[in-house]
Each structure stands twice: as structure tokens, then as C-alpha cells.
Amino acid sequence: MTEKRKKPLPISVEQSKLLGNTLRVKIIGVLLEKPKTAKQVATQIGETPGNVHYHIQKLHKGKLIDLVEEKRVGGVIEKYYEANASSFESNEPVYPELSPNFPASFKSSINAALQLKENDKEQLLEEVSELLKKWVIKSSSADYIDQEEFVIDFTLVSRKEKTEDIKKNNIKK
């Protein structure tokens, strides 16, 4: 995976709305493996090529996937797309289902407090990102088409408040 796709992609509110559609998330999952055409994606996830093409155009316009290659095959131009990231970050909620007040039929939470060195923090984020990518790819296959949908959020939060850093910097000046 390219360096660009390893890190969470900062997204806008408009881009987060595009991710509210499960089919689009599945398409991104398939396009993480290698660049593919809309027809190849449709075959892999068990959807119609026209429907997948429509959603690929939305994702491309929203800059969540890139057109990476065009090949002329006979009289047809095949367009190959690739996902820009396997995870996303936003200051706005990406999935409304993650709101504490959402009346979900199932909700589970795992919490922990950790003391981490800077490189441990980066390693943890990378490992969680890889785990989520694995599950996005797995659940993007055709055998998951009629399964219940879930959303997941991993948030790593420092217990140190931002204002402490600001106060320290003011004292040093």
C-alpha cells in the first residue's frame, strides 16, 4: 500500500456524506486491493455494473478514489480506479450511528487507558488501521451482501488537554 493510503485521509462534511452509503464503502474496500474497473468491482461485490459505475463516479468526484489508468480494449476505454485511503478522519461525524443517542439494535464498546511512547502511539494507530482495512476488504465481498451493517470508530485521545501545551509555550517565551 502506498504511503498516502496508510494514513487516515482528512475529509470534509461532503465527503463524509459519501461514506454514509454502504455500497460506496464496499467499493472503497475493493479498490484498496488493487486498481479495478467498475465492472470488476461489480462482479466482486455482486452488484450491477451500472449501479457500481454511478457510485464510483460519486466517489471520484468526491476525491475519495482516483482514476489511475485508462486502457483501450477494442472500442471500449476501461477506467481503473484506486482508493485514496483505507480510513478517514473528520471533525464532523462521518457516521450518525456513532452518536451516543443513536438507538442502535446492537452497540458494543471497548475502552482502555494506555501510557504510550510516541512511536508506540504511531504503531498502535497503524495496527488498528490495518485491522480495519482487513475487515473492510473482507466484508466487501459478494457473500456479505445481505448481512447486517455495522460502523466502527477508533479514537485515540490524549488525557493531556491542549491548553496545557499552550500554557507551557507561553511560559517558555
Results as ranks from 00 to 15, higher is better:
E97W: 11
L32V: 12
G29C: 01
K107W: 01
I65P: 01
A113Y: 13
L64R: 05
G74S: 04
W135L: 11
I137K: 05
V76K: 11
Q147W: 02
D165S: 08
L98Y: 04
P49M: 00
V68N: 06
L18P: 03
S105H: 09
E127M: 08
E118T: 05
I65E: 05
S141F: 08
A112R: 09
S16N: 10
D66F: 05
K58Q: 14
E130H: 04
L116Y: 04
V151P: 06
A112Y: 07
A38D: 01
S139R: 15
E164K: 15
S105E: 13
S108I: 12
L31F: 00
E127P: 01
L19G: 05
P93E: 09
P100L: 12
E14F: 09
E70L: 03
Q147N: 13
A38N: 04
R24T: 08
K17D: 15
P10C: 07
E122A: 11
G74T: 07
I28G: 00
V68Y: 01
I77P: 04
E148I: 15
N51E: 04
V52E: 02
A42K: 00
D120F: 06
Q15R: 13
N170M: 14
E89V: 13
L18V: 13
N111W: 02
Y80G: 07
V157F: 06
K7H: 12
V73H: 08
V52L: 02
S140C: 05
P100Q: 07
L116H: 05
E126H: 09
E89T: 13
P96A: 08
E92D: 14
L59K: 04
E149A: 13
L114F: 15
Q147V: 02
L32M: 15
Q44P: 03
F154P: 07
K167D: 10
M1D: 06
